[in-house]
């Protein structure tokens, strides 16, 4: 818990910037991260029944993911991109527990399905918010990657944002890479 204290001020600052409603220009990192923060908060409040707090955007993340579960979902149409969520195993299991009522002791099929469905629901929330800005996106299907040591690289030189969230079980990271129209 100690390291969290240090970033708290930073976080409050960014929360002000990030969750501002009525985005005039959606094509900014602040616009997209605001929508993703809202969509994620909504999914956690209505489906996962777990407290979640939006942290400050991160400039980078480690390439290698250790003992984690990731879900990757392609986005096309008005915006070409890919949305991914990276969860440490413990966070993934607790999110599954929040959704299903009982926390699995290991990363089983239910945990993987939950993380895949979570990225799908967050992308659904983004889709609704973009539609209000006359930007219609279409979603592919989620793929789920898990393991003790792996890499997930969202390719192309498109814009990237890394938005972490804090839960009781630890932090997880939302990664969004996007370019213009398909």
């Amino acid at each position: 818990m100690m390291p969290l204290r240090e970033v708290e001020d930073n976080r409050r600052d960014s929360a002000l910037k990030v969750s501002r409603p009525g985005f005039d220009d959606v094509s900014t990192v602040e616009g997209y991260s605001g929508m993703l923060a809202e969509a994620t908060t909504e999914v956690f409040a209505t489906m996962v029944m777990m407290e979640v707090e939006t942290l400050a955007l991160r400039p980078a993340r480690p390439n290698r993911l250790i003992d984690s579960v990731s879900a990757v979902l392609g986005v096309s149409g008005g915006l070409r991109g890919v949305l991914a969520v990276h969860c440490p195993e413990r966070v993934a299991r607790e999110i599954c527990g929040g959704l299903l009522g009982e926390t699995p002791v290991e990363v089983d099929a239910e945990v993987k399905d939950t993380i895949g469905e979570m990225v799908n629901m967050i992308a659904g929330g983004l889709k609704i918010r973009l539609l209000q800005q006359q930007c219609e996106i279409e979603l592919a299907v989620p793929s789920v990657i898990a393991g003790s040591s792996y890499e997930v690289n969202l390719l192309s030189r498109a814009e990237r944002l890394l938005l972490p969230f804090e839960t009781v079980a630890g932090t997880f990271l939302l990664e969004f890479k996007y370019a213009g129209k398909t």
Binding site: R64, S70, V72, L73, G74, V75, S76, G77, R80, G81, V82, A84, E138, A140, I145, G147, S148, S149, Y150, E151, V152, N153, L154, L155, S156, A158, K177, Y178, A179, T182
Partner: peptide, 11 residues
């Protein structure tokens, strides 16, 4: 329509 591609790898 296609999304941006990704690459996954590891041991």
């Amino acid at each position: 329509k296609l999304s941006i591609p990704s690459a996954v790898g590891g041991e």
